[in-house]
Amino acid sequence: MTNGSNDDTPAGSNDDMPAAATRDAANWAKKVSRLKVSQVPEGAVNLNVDGRQLTSPIQGFGKMWQKTYVVRLPSDRVAPADLIATWRKDFGDFWPPGNHFYAPLTGIEPGDVALLNMRMPGGTKLSTGVMVLYADEESFTLMTPQGHMFAGWITFSASRQDDATVVQTQVLMRASDPIFELALMMGGHRQEDRFWSQTLGNVAAHFGHPGAAVDTKVVCVDRRRQWSRWRNVWHSSAIRSAIYMLEAPVRGVRGLTHHQRPAH
């Protein structure tokens, strides 16, 4: 995508609207009523994703936040399109250690569903996922399903500004349910800020600019909590992941007895 206005098209003209409306069709995911995980990569836990609906920031419980993390690289290091191509291909490699993003082998493409296994405080693991809502040469967006820590989406983009390639992660979200809202208030926001700052730092380091400063801007878009959404807790990936972990010994015993049972 090339930025800048097209001088041939006067403001207000809609002559090229059909082209505009269809030129990005391949960039958007197709409509899905419920998510389906087609492949589970080795080591990934497929939990809290299959059968879930997507949630926009409006479907969540907590305050709505827009968080923007930005790092600037010298433009001669990498062009925006090249940076995004690499980021889409190796997305999970830039995450802080201990967290896993299981993308399809082809990388990030619109409509793909990826599994996430996140490290949480206390040594627990949280299993959830995301769908790739949108992807083009200079940006891509992930959208969360029911039960994810937050309802919303994250847009990753790169653009040329003066002599810099500006790399940005922007999160638009509400905590999904009261428990996650409480967790965000009790250090979760700080943890998330650290997570994306580290990720952007890793991207910058990959392109030869280690130690680059990451700017963070946080705006509360809506201070109201949506109490009518408290029932979202039913889908909570935290609760369901914890139950899954607690049941691990039972599953292990069942697996053993199943293997030891003689065939009839």
Partner: peptide
């Protein structure tokens, strides 16, 4: 009617308006 291309950032801007409207 006279808008053209909308990308995911544009959709996020509309969400911002929705949030203000609901507030």
């Amino acid at each position: 009617e006279n808008s053209g291309y909308i990308n995911s950032t544009g959709i996020a801007l509309v969400v911002g308006l929705l949030a203000s409207a609901r507030a």
